[in-house]
Write a protein that binds this DNA or RNA. Structure first.
Lengths: 105, 105
DNA sequence: CGGGTACGTAACCACAAGGGTACATAGAAG
DNA sequence: CTTCTATGTACCCTTGTGGTTACGTACCCG
């Protein structure tokens, strides 16, 4: 969990995930899409790998990275107890609005 | 969004949110619950405040912090496009299991 | 085997983050 | 108005993080 949220904190890494969301990509491909040099990308990929957010597959001399979306369920679960709270608030807001409408009639 | 995920990356800050989930608390109260000194807590609180994750209310010389769970909807929304993916995977897994059962019969 | 390609790792550097101590400030209390 | 309480800010230091260049390595191709 910790590692996942840590990994998500960096915008470059989030961009990588976004790319991988549409298709698996090689390290070079990802590097080309980012404003940073290849070694930097390599390290970011390591972080993502260690957080379980991506999988690597070797294809000749290329490394193909693929998204492992299940890892994000951790975040979803962490969010869970808060979800109830914000939904209550939204419900309350809607009730408020509804009441407002009534009273304005 | 960026600020929110950034804020969530730190475990101490997540602990604070967890505490605030059950009840609003003063800065000192939060500091007492954490292994770090009050000034550090103050700084963490600023980060949370700037990310919109908490609200402050002044009560005499105390500052009462309250959770603002709506801020987390940003994370929920960010998660959204990935959610579809991991659910597909889980569905596929279930299908796979179901098929396996059948074949094993 | 020699060379090109695709990566990762090592070494290095600059700066942001997080922790601590000391101090400033605002408000209650006397 | 002085003092105590609660909290934030300034400053300093150490560590972590992200980026770069240089280098090592694995693999295909001729």
């Amino acid at each position: 969990m910790d590692e996942v949220l840590q990994a998500l904190a960096d915008p470059s890494r989030r961009t990588m995930l976004e790319i991988l969301r549409s298709h698996p990509a090689s390290a070079g491909e990802l590097a080309a899409a980012l404003p940073i040099a290849r070694p930097g990308v390599s390290r970011h990929l390591r972080v993502l790998r260690e957080a379980g957010l991506v999988d690597v597959r070797q294809d000749a001399q290329r490394r193909i990275y693929a998204l492992r979306p299940e890892a994000l369920t951790e975040v979803d679960q962490w969010l869970e107890p808060y979800r109830a709270l914000w939904q209550n608030r939204l419900d309350a807001l809607h009730t408020e609005i509804a009441r407002g409408k009534k009273e304005r009639k």
